[in-house]
Each structure stands twice: as structure tokens, then as C-alpha cells.
Amino acid sequence: MSLRYHIVQTALMTALVFMAVPAAAEDVLLTLTGAVTDGRVEMTRADFDTMDWHEFSTSTSVTDGRPEFRGVLMRDALAHAGAEGSSVRATALNDYVVDIPVEDFHRFDVLAALYMDDVPLTPRDKGPVWIVYPRDNHGVLADIRYDMRWVWQLVALHVQ
């Protein structure tokens, strides 16, 4: 039963990946508002591609093992949008909202991840963008107060 369960699960995951609508280069992945250039900056995959990409493996509170995440640094994304503020209000697809101090992105290499284990993140999983903290490199990050800042299905950042 367990084997069948796993086969079904793997098949489903694969189906998910291929069935999900792949993000076109011109699709807006992330919208920044507030204290950014001209009050609104929309970032497409093409914008992400112009920036430096980073990757690291880390454990997370909702998965097993240490998946490898790939994306751009949050501070680079904010710099790209000309953000000037001390805090960002992150909004997810499901209207999950959390305030994150900008200081986090300077203290730690926080990633705006687009890939997990080389698989693109989609809205059907935790995409398009997942805020990932380098949890294993800093003991202080293994805490619920930081876990709740790992916003998945991130679509908007309001800088204030």
C-alpha cells in the first residue's frame, strides 16, 4: 500500500509540474509597491534573469531533507526596484500577509527562490516565489518567528 501510495504521489508531483502553466518571460511574478521607483515595479522572469542568481540547500519547517533553492537575493530584488524602507509587507496568492523587516535581508542571504531542487516553483506548489531563509546557517532562524516569514506563493511586496 505504501509503495502504491508513493508511486501515486510521485506521479502526481510530476503531473503537477508539467500541467502547471509555465510562466512566460513577460508574466509578472512579483509586484513591488510603496517606497519603490515610481511607486510600483513589476518584476517579470526576464527581470529576474538580469540579476545575480544564488543557490543554497536548507532544511525547511514544512518539507523533509534539505532541498536546494535557487533564485535571487531579496535585497537585490529590493535594490532592483529602488526600494527605500525599513519593512516590507509580503502578500501571497491566498492573501497571506506578513510584515518582514528589511534588516533581515541584509543580515541574512534571504532568497526569493524560483526553483526548488531544480524544479520551478508554481502556484500549485509554493510558487511563483518562495521567500527562503538560510535556516541551517544561523541558529536564530530555526524559530517560529522566522518560519512565518517564509512566504510561499509570494506575489506582492509593499515597501514602507
Binding site: A20, D64, G65, P123, R124, D125
Partner: peptide
């Protein structure tokens, strides 16, 4: 479609290891 995707993502989350 969006609501569908989100619901799938929640169910996927429940499928992940710890959950």
C-alpha cells in the same frame, strides 16, 4: 484557475513530509 491552484497547493502542502 487561481483558486484551483491554491487549493491544490494546500493539498500538496499536506502531502509534504512533516504534515
Amino acid at each position: 484557475q487561481t483558486r484551483f491552484d491554491i487549493l491544490v497547493s494546500r493539498l500538496t502542502l499536506l502531502e509534504d513530509g512533516p504534515q
